[in-house]
Design a protein around this nucleic acid. Structure first.
Length: 834
RNA sequence: GCGGGCGUGGCGGAAUCGGUAGACGCUGCCGACUUAAAAUCGGUUUCCUGAUGGAGUGCGGGUUCGAGUCCCGCCGUCCGCACCA
C-alpha cells in the first residue's frame, strides 16, 4: 500500500467498476426489503453547484447504508428539464432550448458521476423528452376524463414586452423580473387542475406524515388555509334588488355588525361604478394599490359608501350601509364581508374613519359596555353581550347557535372555505409539455386521442421576436378535429413545469414504454422512503406532487395516498462575502488574507450568506473535486453542520476533510504486523461506534456520524497492534464507506477482500459489547460537581453513597456539616444536600 | 401584523430521558521531527485567578436535591405567510 491516497486515480477506477458491474441498478424482482431513496432532481441550468453536492451526498450516504443493511435500494436520478432559463438562453444566445438543455445535462451528469454517487443511471429520465412528457400528456387526459381538469377565463400577470405570463414570484414591485416592464393583469383562458377538490384530504393527510419536518407541514397547513364559518345572505333594501352574500368565521358577532363591505370587483360594486363616476374612480384607486408586504402594512383602509343598504338577518328593520372597501378580496370567500368593528381591526379602522357604529358584543373581562372605545379591536374570547338571544353564551356556543338558526331559517349555511386555489397550469411558453388538446369551433376543446400521443414540440421555432413560438409556428397548430375532422387548432399553451415534477418519482419506479407506469411495479417501490431537497419546495412542488398522487388514486390508477413517507429539507451551503474598497462584490479567488489581490487594497468581509452569483461568493465544485478528490468533498459536506442547517464553506474545512481522508488511508495501511493480546476497550468502542453511526445515519444526523468516526479513528491510532485493533480498522472502513466510498473500495481491495465494499454488509453489533462494566459516578454537593468516582456497573446504592461520603473532597466541601439528604441516581450520580 | 425556528468557547457544533456543559472538527498557541520547508506527531485552546478556587449555555424570574434542557416574562436573530373576513 502506498503512503498517499491517490484520490484522482481511485475515483476514476472505482466509478468505472461500479458502472461496468451495474452495482447500483435497482432490481425490481428482488425479494429483499425495499428502500426508495430520492433527492429532488435538478434543473439542468449549466453546472452543478455546492447545494447539489450537499443534497446528493446526503442521499447517497443513506442509499449506500441501506444497501449495507440488506435493502434493495432504488436511488435514481433525472432532469427537471423544461423551463424558462432554456428559453432565455435561446433569446440571448440564439441557441435552441433543446440543445442548450441537453448539453447542460451531459455536463452535469459527468459532474455527478465524478462524485461517485450510487445512482441507478439505467432509470435516468429527462422531462423534456417525448418519452417522458408524452406519458404526462396521457395522464393529463386521464385526469381530464376524470373531471379534474377544466378551463376558465382567469386573470394573469402579463408581461407586455416579453409577451408572456409571469408567475407571482416573477413579478417584483409590479414589474417583470426580466423585462422590467410594468406587469398588466390580463384575462386569459387557462387550464386548471382541481386541487381544491382535495383540499380536505391534503390537509388531513399531513397528520399521517410523521417523518416530515413540522415546519413544512405547518407551511402546507397555512397554505391550504382551511377555515370554518357561516356563508349567509343580507337581504336587499330597495333600490338594491339582489341579496349580498357574505362569509364570516365569526357569526357569533353578528349583532355587532354595522356595515357590509364588498370587494372592488364585486358585481354590486361594478353596477354602482357604471352609473357613478366617483365609485368608478374609487375602484380604480383600489386596484392601483400595491400588493407588496410593506404597502399592505401601511395602506389605509378605504371605503366608498354605495348608498345601498341591506337588512340584518335577525331584524328586517335594522339596515346596514354597503361599502366598497379596498381590503376585501374578490378571490376569497364570497367577495363580501360583514363589518364588525369592535372585533376586527380592519373593520374598526374603516368604522372610525367613516364614523360608523362600534358595538361591543364580546365581553373583554368585565367590560360589557355596548359602546366600544379605543382603536384596537378585541379578538379574544369572552361572553357574548348586547346580542339578544346569544347573550351569556361563549364564542363557540354562539357560533353554533347562529349557524343553527341560519340553516333553520334558510338564510345561511355553515361552510368551510379554503385559501388554496385551483392550480392554473397553462403557460404561454415553448419549452414545456404541450397541452394535448385540440380546439374545434364545432366540438369545443377535444382531447388528443391517445394513439396520437405524444404531441411533440416542433424543433423549427424562432425566438427572434417575443411571444410564444408555438402560437406563431406556420404549421404545427393546424390539425383536423379528432371528432368531426373539421378545421381545428392545437392548444399552444404548455404545462407548468411543476406538472413534470409531480409524478417523476413514479416514472422512476416503473418505466414501461407504452404507458406512464405499471401500477403493480410502482406500488412495490412507493412511497419514497426518504425524499431530500431544499426547503424552497416546501409548498408548491410538495403540495402538487401530493395532489397528483391523490388524483391518480382518485381515478383508480395507483393505490398510494402519500408519495413521500419521509421528507428531509437540507440547509444551504454558504460562504463569506467580500466587498472591495470601492464597494463592489469580490469572489473568494479575488481575496487573500483580507486583501484584494489585484489592487492590494483591504477588503470588507461581509456576512456569511447563501452562495449566489450576484454576490460572487460561489465555489465551483468541479475544481475542488479535481484538487481534493470526491471523498474529501463528500466528507466535508457531511461534517460539522447539522444537515438541516446551513453549511459554511471554508478552505480550512475542505483541507481538514482531505487530511482525514489521508489519515484514514494511513490507518488502514498500517495493519501489517499482527500484534498480540486483547484490547477490550477498543473492541467495545468499535461496537458502540457501529451502533451509533447506524443510528445517526438513519436519523440523517451525518455530522454526528462523522464525529463518532473521528473518535474511533483517534482511538485506533493510539492503540498498539493487536487482533482487536485490526478488527477495529476493518470496522472503521466499513462504517466510513458510505461517506468515502472510493477510499473504502481501494482499501478493501488492497487488504485482499473479495468483491466490493459497496456490497458488503454493515458490521454486526454485539449488544453485550455496548454495556460498560465500570461507570464513572459524579458526586455533587448541592448540585455542584465535587468529585467523580469509579464503580462497577450496578453497584448498590448504599455502597455508592458510603463511598461518596467517604471522599476527601466531599468531606472538605461539607466541612463537618451533616448531610440532610442524599440522592443516588444508579450508575450516574450522587447529590448530597447539605 | 400572524405563524414558526434558533440563541452554548475565537468558529461549526455535541450534550435528543431534567443528572459530570463544551464530545468531534476548524482556527490559534507551544513543542517534537527536519539543514529548512511541507507533511506528520505530541501538548494546549470557555472566562477570571499564580495556584487552591470561582463564574459560566441571550437577559430577568420561577419549579426542582439538581435546569443548556421544564414554566413565566423579556431581548435579539432567521424563515414562512401576508388585508383570508
Amino acid at each position: 500500500m502506498t503512503s498517499r491516497f491517490n484520490a484522482l486515480k481511485a475515483d476514476a477506477h472505482w466509478q468505472a467498476v461500479w458502472e461496468e458491474r451495474r452495482t447500483f441498478a435497482a432490481d425490481a424482482a428482488s425479494t429483499k426489503p425495499r428502500a426508495y431513496v430520492l433527492e429532488m432532481f435538478p434543473y439542468p441550468s449549466g453546472k452543478i453547484h455546492m447545494g447539489h453536492v450537499r443534497n446528493y451526498t446526503m442521499g447517497d450516504v443513506l442509499a449506500r447504508y441501506r444497501r449495507m443493511t440488506g435493502h434493495e435500494v432504488l436511488h435514481p436520478m433525472g432532469w427537471d428539464a423544461f423551463g424558462m432559463p432554456a428559453e432565455n438562453a435561446a433569446m440571448e444566445k440564439g441557441v435552441h432550448p433543446g440543445n442548450w438543455t441537453r448539453q447542460n445535462i451531459a455536463t452535469m451528469k459527468a459532474q455527478l458521476k465524478r462524485l461517485g454517487f450510487a445512482l441507478d443511471w439505467t432509470r435516468e429520465l429527462a422531462t423534456c423528452e417525448p418519452d417522458y412528457y408524452g406519458h404526462e400528456q396521457a395522464l393529463f387526459l386521464d385526469l381530464f376524463a376524470g373531471g379534474l381538469v377544466y378551463r376558465k377565463e382567469s386573470s394573469v400577470n402579463w408581461d407586455p414586452v416579453d409577451m408572456t405570463v409571469l408567475a407571482n414570484e416573477q413579478v417584483i414591485d409590479g414589474r417583470g423580473w426580466r423585462s422590467g416592464a410594468v406587469v398588466e393583469k390580463r384575462k386569459l383562458n387557462q387550464w386548471f387542475l382541481k386541487i381544491t377538490d382535495f383540499a380536505d384530504e391534503l390537509l388531513d393527510g399531513l397528520s399521517s406524515l410523521d417523518q416530515w419536518p413540522d415546519k413544512v407541514r405547518l407551511m402546507q397547513e397555512n397554505w391550504i388555509g382551511r377555515s370554518k364559518g357561516l356563508t349567509f345572505r343580507f337581504d336587499p333594501v330597495a333600490p338594491l334588488t339582489a341579496p349580498i352574500e357574505v362569509y364570516s368565521t365569526r357569526p357569533d358577532t353578528i349583532f355587532g355588525a354595522s356595515f357590509v363591505a364588498i370587494a372592488a370587483d364585486h358585481p354590486v360594486a361594478r353596477e354602482v361604478a357604471a352609473r357613478d363616476t366617483n365609485a368608478a374612480t374609487f375602484i380604480e384607486r383600489c386596484k392601483a394599490g400595491g400588493t407588496t408586504a410593506a404597502e399592505l402594512d401601511t395602506q389605509e383602509k378605504l371605503g366608498f359608501d354605495t348608498g345601498y343598504t341591506v337588512a340584518h338577518p335577525f331584524d328586517a328593520a335594522w339596515t346596514l350601509p354597503v361599502y366598497i372597501a379596498n381590503f376585501v378580496l374578490m378571490e376569497y370567500g364570497t367577495g363580501a364581508v360583514m363589518g364588525v368593528p369592535a372585533h376586527d381591526q380592519r373593520d374598526l379602522d374603516l368604522a372610525r374613519k367613516y364614523g360608523l357604529d362600534v358595538t361591543r358584543v364580546v365581553a373583554e373581562g368585565d367590560q360589557t359596555d355596548a359602546v366600544f372605545e379605543g382603536d384596537t379591536a378585541y379578538t379574544g374570547p369572552g361572553a357574548i353581550v348586547n346580542s339578544r338571544f346569544l347573550d351569556g353564551m361563549d364564542v363557540e356556543q354562539a357560533k353554533a347557535a347562529v349557524i343553527a338558526r341560519a340553516e333553520g331559517e334558510g338564510w345561511g349555511k355553515g361552510s368551510t372555505v379554503f385559501r388554496l386555489r385551483d392550480w392554473g397550469v397553462s403557460r404561454q411558453r415553448y419549452w414545456g409539455t404541450p397541452i394535448p388538446i385540440i380546439h374545434c369551433d364545432a366540438c369545443g376543446a377535444v382531447p388528443v386521442p391517445k394513439d396520437q400521443l405524444p404531441v411533440v414540440l416542433p424543433d423549427d421555432v424562432s425566438f427572434a421576436i417575443p411571444g410564444n413560438p408555438l402560437d406563431r409556428h406556420p404549421t404545427w397548430k393546424y390539425v383536423p378535429c379528432p371528432t368531426c375532422s373539421g378545421e381545428a387548432v392545437r392548444e399552444t399553451d404548455t404545462l407548468d413545469t411543476f406538472v413534470d415534477s409531480s409524478w417523476y418519482f413514479i416514472r422512476f419506479a416503473s418505466q414501461p414504454k407504452d404507458r406512464p407506469f405499471d401500477r403493480a411495479e410502482a406500488e412495490k417501490w412507493l412511497p419514497v422512503a426518504q425524499y431530500i431537497g431544499g426547503v424552497e419546495h416546501a409548498i408548491l412542488h410538495l403540495l402538487y406532487a401530493r395532489f397528483w398522487t391523490r388524483a391518480l388514486k382518485h381515478i383508480g390508477q395507483l393505490d398510494i395516498a402519500e408519495p413521500f413517507a419521509g421528507l428531509f429539507t437540507q440547509g444551504m451551503v454558504t460562504h463569506e462575502t467580500y466587498k472591495s474598497a470601492e464597494g463592489l462584490w469580490l469572489g473568494p479567488d479575488d481575496v487573500e488574507g483580507g486583501i484584494e489581490v489585484s489592487t492590494g487594497q483591504p477588503v470588507t468581509v461581509g456576512r456569511v450568506e447563501k452562495m449566489s452569483k450576484s454576490k460572487k461568493n460561489t465555489i465551483d465544485p468541479e475544481p475542488i473535486v479535481d484538487q481534493y478528490g470526491a471523498d474529501a468533498v463528500r466528507w466535508f459536506m457531511l461534517s460539522d453542520s447539522p444537515p438541516e442547517r446551513d453549511l459554511p464553506w471554508s478552505e480550512a474545512g475542505i483541507d481538514g476533510a482531505w487530511r482525514f481522508v489521508q489519515r484514514l488511508w494511513r490507518l488502514v495501511g498500517s495493519e501489517d504486523d499482527a500484534g498480540e493480546g486483547e484490547n477490550i476497550a477498543l473492541r467495545k468502542l468499535s461496537h458502540r461506534t457501529t451502533a451509533g453511526v447506524a443510528e445517526a445515519i438513519e436519523g440523517l444526523q451525518f455530522n454526528k456520524a462523522v464525529a463518532l468516526l473521528y473518535t474511533l479513528a483517534n482511538a485506533v491510532e493510539k492503540a498498539a497492534p493487536s487482533p482487536d485493533r485490526r478488527d477495529a480498522v476493518a470496522t472503521l472502513l466499513r462504517l466510513a464507506s458510505p461517506m468515502v466510498p472510493h477510499l473504502a473500495e481501494e482499501a478493501w481491495a488492497a487488504s485482499g477482500q473479495s468483491g466490493l465494499v459497496a456490497n458488503a454488509p454493515w458490521p454486526t453489533v454485539d449488544p453485550a459489547m455496548l454495556v460498560d462494566d465500570e461507570v464513572t459516578i459524579a458526586i455533587q454537593v448541592n448540585g455542584k460537581l465535587r468529585d467523580t468516582l469509579m464503580f462497577a456497573k450496578g453497584a448498590p446504592r448504599e455502597e455508592v453513597e458510603a463511598a461518596a461520603l467517604a471522599s476527601d473532597k466531599i468531606a472538605r466541601t461539607l466541612d463537618g456539616k451533616p448531610p440532610r439528604k442524599v440522592i443516588v441516581v444508579p450508575d450516574r450520580l450522587v447529590n448530597i444536600v447539605a
